[in-house]
Structure formats: structure tokens, C-alpha cells
């Protein structure tokens, strides 16, 4: 080979190496900041005071109109360590009561700020499923992710407004702590080991949110009096909103019903 050829080959290899090192470094630095997001965020403004003597609450039931579709079967055979309930949780409606609907105050809180709870919320991977399937959390609040399965999982949120990350977690590994900096509703999380594993994290700025239980019920407490827009969000059926006016110490019921599309 002549000199020119050698120079061509070597510069190609150098370019490849340079690219790799560059990207590796950038990613490393970014994932570090994502691992301890609470520490790197600017100090939050002090919470707007709420008079506990006037707070109101809103409760209700979310229904599904019509018969619930039969839950799709999950085939977990690609990992012998995966055992347990094997039906999808896309729409869970027992007796017409719709579970896993995220309910939150979408409008009406103005510029109020709220303290971020010190306690982390937990996501547990058990039976190769996420528990819970739908989670609510405040911006900046820690989420602790545990693996109770005898197999490796990877946790891969695919957000639209927040930073995406992907980390694996072997059996018995220490919990992973994460948080999301920006508001985002129905942020999907998946596992690339077990493609049926899906869940949704809902990140909001206020503590006024809830997720409907198997009975379709929710309760949001401690709201200051005001005019609010409540949003009901279901991963497949979409979003609905309803207006509600709460006077001091009010306790109102706001029900919602979703139709199958």
C-alpha cells in the first residue's frame, strides 16, 4: 500500500474513534445530571400559603360507557423468569368503573407554587410488570424504581418534554432514583427486555392529582377555593376536561365517563 492509502485508512479510524469518544463523554455527563436531578435544579420558589381552614375537596367516579374490551394476553415466554398476571392493562374497567385514569387540576391554580414532597414515589417491577401502571408525581419529586424480579430489566422513559434516559437494573440491584423536571402527562415508560412492559408517569406542578383505583374512584383534597378545570386522562382513550367551582370547605363530586373509540 502506498502512503496515501495508509493516510486514508488511519484518518478514517481516527474519525471513528473521535466520534465515539465525543459521544460517550457527552452521554456520560448528561446521565449523571439526570441521576441526581433534584440536586442540580435551581432552588424552587417558596410555596404559596394555603389556609387549611378553607380547603375544599373533589371526589368522583370515572366510568367506561359500554362493555370493556377483553384484555389482550401477554406472551411472557421469552423470559422464563417472568411469571404472573399476563393480561395487558391498557383498559381496565371492572363493572364499568375505569381504573388508571389520571385526574389533575389542569387550570385554575394561577401562579401558585407548591412544596415538592420529600418522600419519593415508588415504581416496582414485579412479575415483569410495572406497579403501578399509572403514576402521578410532582415536578422534581424523586421516583424510586425497584426491581423485585429475578431478571434484568431496563427502564426506558420516552418523554416528549423531558430528557430521555435508559438504564438497566439487574436482580437485587439498588433502587434507581430519578425525577422529571418538566410537566408532562402520560409520559410512557417501557422495558426493552420485555416489550409488553409499559407504564405511564404523569408529572405535574401541583399536588392536586389522583389516579382512579379499580373502583374508578378518585379524591383530590386540600384545594384552595377557586374555579378549576379538572382533566381526566386515560392512556388510550385520551383526555376530557370538566369545570368545577369550589367554595371554602366545599366537597364536590365530579364524575366522568369515557367512550370506547
Amino acid at each position: 500500500m502506498n502512503n496515501k492509502t495508509w493516510i486514508a485508512i488511519l484518518s478514517l479510524l481516527a474519525l471513528a474513534l473521535g466520534l465515539l469518544v465525543g459521544c460517550g463523554k457527552k452521554e456520560g455527563a448528561e446521565s449523571q445530571s439526570a441521576a441526581t436531578p433534584a440536586a442540580t435544579q435551581p432552588a424552587a420558589a417558596p410555596a404559596t400559603p394555603i389556609d387549611p381552614a378553607t380547603v375544599a375537596s373533589v371526589t368522583g367516579t370515572v366510568k367506561l360507557d359500554g362493555a370493556a374490551p377483553k384484555a389482550a394476553k401477554i406472551d411472557m415466554s421469552q423470559d422464563p423468569a417472568c411469571k404472573g398476571a399476563n393480561t395487558a392493562e391498557t383498559i381496565i374497567a371492572d363493572g364499568g368503573n375505569l381504573a388508571n385514569v389520571f385526574v389533575y387540576v389542569k387550570e385554575g391554580l394561577g401562579d401558585r407554587t407548591f412544596d415538592v414532597p420529600k418522600d419519593a414515589v415508588t415504581i416496582d417491577q414485579q412479575g415483569c410488570k410495572y406497579h403501578p401502571h399509572v403514576l402521578g408525581v410532582m415536578t422534581g419529586q424523586n421516583i424510586q424504581i425497584k426491581n423485585d424480579d429475578p431478571t434484568t430489566h431496563n427502564i426506558h422513559p420516552t418523554p416528549a418534554a423531558n430528557r430521555e434516559w435508559n438504564e438497566s437494573q439487574p436482580p437485587q440491584a439498588a433502587p434507581i432514583e430519578k425525577s422529571f423536571a418538566r410537566e408532562e402527562v402520560m409520559l410512557p415508560v417501557k422495558c426493552n427486555q420485555h416489550p409488553w412492559m409499559k407504564m405511564y408517569i404523569n408529572v405535574v406542578k401541583s399536588p392536586f392529582y389522583a389516579v382512579t383505583g379499580p373502583d374508578g374512584k378518585y379524591e383530590i383534597k386540600g384545594l384552595p377555593p377557586g374555579d378549576y378545570t379538572l382533566a381526566f386522562v386515560q392512556e388510550k382513550l385520551g383526555e376530557q376536561t370538566q369545570k368545577v367551582t369550589l367554595a371554602a370547605k366545599d366537597s364536590k363530586t365530579v364524575d366522568a365517563a369515557f367512550k370506547l373509540q
Binding site: Q78, T152, Q193, H194
Partner: peptide, 11 residues
């Protein structure tokens, strides 16, 4: 070689 289960088998 990692434990070859789930998606790891393919990747």
C-alpha cells in the same frame, strides 16, 4: 456474554 433473555438475546 450477558444472560441471554428477553431483548438481550436479539441485541
Amino acid at each position: 456474554i450477558p444472560p441471554l433473555h428477553g431483548g438481550i438475546r436479539f441485541e
